[in-house]
Every structure is written in C-alpha cells, then in structure tokens.
C-alpha cells in the first residue's frame, strides 16, 4: 500500500497572532512552526501501517523553502520520502489542486490529511482533493483500518460516531483518535540522522488560480474585565447570568 500524508506547516498552538502590511498578512516574526496537530495523528497512524502492513509512506507539503524543516521532522518520525510542491499557498482550492496532482501521479492508495489546519481552519483541502481525484472521502476520521483494497473508518459526528467502509483510493480528513495521544511519535536521534539522507523532492507547482482572496485580517475586540462573584453569594451569579448576560 502506498500512503501519502499531507502535512500542513502551521504556527505552534501557543503563538501570538499578529498581522503586518496593513493587516493583510500574518506576521511570522518570532513564530515557531510545527506539523499541524491533526496531521501528526495521521502521520503516526501511517507509521503503524508501515510497521504492521509494510506500507510505504511519503509526506507532502505545498509551501516555500521555509517548510522544509517541518518535512524533515516528518522524515525523522519515519516517513520514507518527502515532496515539497514549490508554491505559496493562496487558498484551499489551490492547495487541493496541487496535492491531487501529486497523489494521482504517484498512484497512492491512501491519502491521509487532517480535518483542518489550525491556522486558517479551512477544513476543505482533503474533501476538495478527493473530489478532484475522484477518490472516496471520509472526514473527521478517528479510526482507520485497511484490509486488502477496502478501508474501514470511524468518523466522528455531532453526538456520536459512524462506521464506514470504502474502497481505496481513499482520502481522509483525520484528527485526534486516529492514534492514542501517548503513541504520538516524536523524532529520536537516530530518526533525525536518517532523515538527513532521505529524499526531499521539490516539484514545480501547477498553474492554478485561487478562488478566494484575503482582503484583510482583524483581531477581536479586547475583552472587558471579569466580574468576580463571591462563592458565598452565588445568587448574584445566577442573577447576572439571567438578567445581564441573558444566558439562562
């Protein structure tokens, strides 16, 4: 089985979010970038398929040279090779087009992406990719098994879960649950050394026009002070929630 794991390169979850150029661009100054957490679960699941079922695992990112350390990290975790589509992502559709091309040309059976990137929270790349390559698609995937050419997946729905089966090729939008938190792989020294020798192929981007464009970023209004209520006067809390906040 050939697996492709799509890796989004995103600001660390503790990053301060600021904008530059008249609030038109995300300010990357001082920001640490990491593998998108949803993709980290997918990558670890892919490693399981590699170890248990002899799958090969490639990782891919659409981005500039600055994303290479993130791809190297994925290689250190155990991916066999990496692909970087050399382009600045303009929108989800643009990225999906590039990824669909890589996936088609590489004849991948299973494409593991994340439910969403934690930067722009698009939640659209995996589904668009599946539609573009006419592959099956399971979103918010929390469990994945493959037997021959058939996958069994569990997806999280509002208030429960659903078990689905589908033939490969399959694209998933994965998330926490795909593997246990404690099993998440972190690169060790040996992995890091090996990663240096593994191939990281840079491919040219296809010419695609984006469907959407960012006009401007805005920050939420600063919050007012918290109103503290004495633990011995909880009636006041109920009164505030009822009469002021109109929340109960």
């Amino acid at each position: 089985m050939k697996i492709l794991v799509c890796i989004s390169h995103v600001p660390d979850t503790t990053s301060k979010i600021n904008f530059t150029d008249g609030d038109s661009k995300f300010d990357t100054a001082g920001v640490q970038f990491v593998i998108n957490p949803n993709d980290e679960f997918g990558l670890t699941r892919a490693m399981w398929f590699k170890e248990k079922q002899g799958a090969t695992v490639d990782v891919v990112n659409v981005g500039g040279t600055e994303t290479e350390p993130t791809l190297r990290k994925a290689l250190a975790i155990g991916a066999d090779s990496a692909i970087r589509v050399d382009a600045t992502p303009t929108d989800g559709f643009f990225v999906a087009k590039q990824l669909a091309k890589v996936a088609k040309e590489g004849n991948y059976d299973l494409i593991i992406a994340g439910r969403e990137s934690i930067d722009y929270n698009g939640g659209m790349v995996p589904g668009m990719m599946a539609a573009l390559m006419d592959a099956n698609f399971v979103n918010t995937c929390i469990s994945l098994e493959v037997e021959g050419d058939t996958a069994t997946a569990i997806r999280e729905i509002d208030g429960g879960k659903e078990t689905l089966t589908a033939k490969l090729p399959l694209v998933i939008g994965g998330q926490k649950g795909l593997v246990h938190e404690k099993d998440l792989k972190i690169p060790n020294m040996r992995g890091i050394m090996q990663a240096r020798k593994k191939p990281l192929n840079v491919v040219e981007a296809e010419d695609v026009s984006a469907q959407t464009e960012t006009k401007k970023f805005e920050k939420p209004d600063p919050k007012g002070e918290v109103k503290l209520v004495d633990p011995d006067n909880l009636d006041e809390l109920i009164d505030l929630l009822h009469n002021e906040a109109k929340a109960i």
Binding site: P11, I17, F19, N121, Q211, T212, T214, F217, K219, P220
Partner: peptide
C-alpha cells in the same frame, strides 16, 4: 474566523 477564533479574515470569493 481564523486561527481558531484568535482573529478574523475578510475573504473575497471570486
């Protein structure tokens, strides 16, 4: 909303 509600984005759909 973007950056998990830490900011907003005015997006034009073309």
């Amino acid at each position: 909303s973007v950056f998990t509600n830490k900011a907003f984005n005015l997006l034009q759909i073309n």
